[in-house]
């Protein structure tokens, strides 16, 4: 490769690199290679869909619609998807409920409150959160968090015993540290960086004019946020939240370690549960039977379609907000 030469209009052409007439083939070849590399994304996505669908046909045909839409999944006779789907959704929703306020709070803090120069160390801290691998969160979760929460859940459960709604949510006899709620908490920690950073990008595109205008009218910072920042960024923030939701649903290892291992649909959030990704990860090694393995792959396809769907909607929101901001 020749040395990099900056194009300098002052230098007459010809005194820079000796011009060689390139064969169009090399140029076209490069373009082709780049095109193929780009197409890889689409190719892989299509292949994933096709191959997992192929491998799941045993599950579809043996269990049938009725089997697939049942709750229980025991690796033997029952291969229903609803129980694990419930666990995936519930733990992700809990993750959102806990994580979204925190993420948005941080996003607002770093864009509106902390001066831009000082924001960098804060951003580093949030990135630290993102860099901790899922398995380490799971390890900490099962060894430190679960036993500690066990006692707290027990106390809460005995406290709400008998109270109508609270008892069915937070009460019950089989309350345990490894449960839907603990999985939700860990998920909240893990999705905060992505929701926060996407929200920050969106919020940062709010035109200064609108913000200054609000201040000029005598608004406090909170009022400015509500009146000028929020209307501009709500679409993008919704998109960010959906990205976080998709991430939470696909999260495997940390959830597998702290959600417990019973497949059931129950309102008790402190009970042991399971999720789609967790059951695939934990049971794949034991799945020797044809239908068992096919069912797990089928669940993987299910999860794939689900997360792609959520991400499509999410990215649409985010792109729309970004386009609006560029045009504004």
């Amino acid at each position: 490769m020749s040395t990099m030469t900056k194009a300098d209009p002052a230098t007459p052409a010809g005194s820079a690199n000796p011009l060689q007439r390139r064969r169009p083939l090399g140029d076209r070849g490069f373009q082709l290679v780049a095109l193929v590399a780009g197409l890889l994304v689409l190719i892989i996505l299509v292949l994933i869909t096709v191959t997992t669908a192929q491998q799941s046909t045993t599950w579809f045909t043996t269990a049938g619609f009725k089997g697939i839409f049942s709750v229980s999944f025991d690796g033997n006779t029952h291969f229903g998807a609803m129980g694990v789907l419930y666990g995936t959704v519930i733990s992700s929703v809990i993750g959102l409920i806990v994580g979204v306020p925190v993420s948005i709070g941080i996003a607002l803090l770093l864009t509106q409150v902390v001066p831009a120069r000082l924001a960098r160390p804060f951003v580093y801290v949030i990135d630290l959160l993102a860099v901790v691998p899922s398995v380490v969160w799971g390890l900490w979760g099962i060894i430190v968090l679960v036993p500690w929460l066990q006692k707290i859940y027990h106390d809460i459960a005995s406290g709400v015993k008998g109270i109508p709604v609270l008892d069915s949510l937070f009460g019950g006899d089989a309350v345990g540290g490894a449960s839907f709620f603990t999985a939700g908490l860990i998920l909240a920690i893990m999705i905060t960086p992505i929701i926060s950073s996407l929200s920050r990008e969106v919020i940062a595109t709010v035109p200064d004019i609108d913000k200054e205008g609000a201040y000029a009218l005598g608004a406090t910072r909170w009022e400015m946020i509500r009146g000028a920042v929020w209307p501009h960024s709500q679409g993008g923030v919704v998109g960010a939240i959906l990205v976080g939701f998709g991430r939470a649903m696909g999260e495997t290892i940390a959830v597998a370690l702290v959600i417990g291992d019973s497949v059931e649909v129950t309102s008790h959030l402190f009970y042991s549960g399971h999720s789609i990704a967790a059951i695939i990860a934990l049971q794949f090694g034991e799945a020797t039977g044809g239908e068992f393995r096919s069912a797990l792959i089928g669940l993987g396809l299910f999860l794939f379609v689900l997360t792609i769907g959520v991400n499509l909607v999410a990215r649409w929101f985010v792109e729309r907000a970004a386009r609006r901001a560029r045009g504004a």
Partner: peptide, 11 residues
């Protein structure tokens, strides 16, 4: 490719 960043690694 944006959407693909959200595909779970288990898939």
């Amino acid at each position: 490719s944006s959407v693909m960043t959200g595909v779970p690694s288990i898939v």
